[in-house]
Design a protein around this nucleic acid. Structure first.
Lengths: 160, 160
DNA sequence: GATCACACGTTATAACATATCAATACCGAA
DNA sequence: TTCGGTATTGATATGTTATAACGTGTGATC
């Protein structure tokens, strides 16, 4: 299990790596990373935060890449389906995927103070929840696991 | 751990019990279960499904209990804060709590076909997610755990 | 060069949620 | 019993998130 998002890191390289991984994945799966889609992914990668569709749309329209909601939603839907981004249900917002390529059952740690989002790759949180589902005869297709609270940095600030 | 929602049961008694538990909790905590709040809780209890705020509002306005969105949202907020209902983030909808009184970290099993919702009381899904949070230095305050898939009944229908 | 699949442009609207302020009900203390 | 604070409700307006529907462009394939 690895959790990415809060630790300091070389963000330029982080973004470059993620874009390269996205390129590779699209090429391999015959998906088209068009200009709008690429730009939306860049916007999401620029920050380890969740952005709303209308935040994205604001950037796009400022750059002449489209001004109507469907432009942003279509790009976000593509990225989510391609496994390059995730939707954060608790925020009605979106964030870039930190584990491109891995088969996904992501869990998120969401800071309520700075809105940063860390993606924790738990793979089989199926543990307890899976037990409950089996007991109930329920067939899980997708799980949403989102924890809200305070990230390390914001805990320190609160303590000051 | 117990999971409620899919098994057949005496629903009349189920609703009555839940209303009695709600009454007791409000009396004990000095909370007012006013007519609108009571009616909203009844509406949620009537089905083991999640209802949108505007579904609720439709019923309320048909019954002369209020016609504007804030009426429904205020009642729902009250119920959620009182621990009598939960918000399902993945659906932007609300469902009655099946475990009134217990300290809550609920997990939900949501059928994508019939929209029924079962609440599984896992208490400490803290297991894996808690590990990840501790490793990252993240302080969890609230968790959202929602599994989407097919309930037993809808699996059978799909198989026909 | 016709056709097909996919992406994009555009308008409109649906669905979900909150801010604000005024009016009223409830309840304990003077 | 009246006063004053708090909780609740009523009402209007607006903000935010998301999709339906329909048309256009573009590149691949036959």
């Amino acid at each position: 299990m690895s959790t990415l998002g809060f630790e300091t890191h070389d963000h330029g390289a982080c973004v470059d790596d993620a874009m390269a991984a996205a390129e590779a994945r699209c090429a391999a799966s015959d998906l088209r990373l068009t200009p709008v889609r690429r730009r939306v992914l860049e916007l999401l990668l620029a920050e380890h935060r969740a952005l709303g569709a209308y935040d994205i749309l604001g950037h796009l329209s400022a750059e002449g890449l489209g001004a109507q909601p469907p432009v942003a939603y279509r790009a976000l839907d593509f990225l989510v389906k391609a496994g390059l981004a995730h939707r954060i249900e608790a925020l009605n917002a979106y964030t870039a995927c930190s584990h491109v390529g891995l088969d996904h059952t992501p869990a998120f740690l969401i800071c309520r103070s700075c809105q940063s989002v860390a993606e924790s790759e738990t793979a089989l949180t199926q543990g307890r929840l899976g037990d409950a589902a089996r007991a109930a005869g329920f067939q899980i297709e997708r799980t949403v696991i989102e924890a809200q609270g305070l990230c390390p940095a914001c805990q320190n600030e609160a303590a000051v």
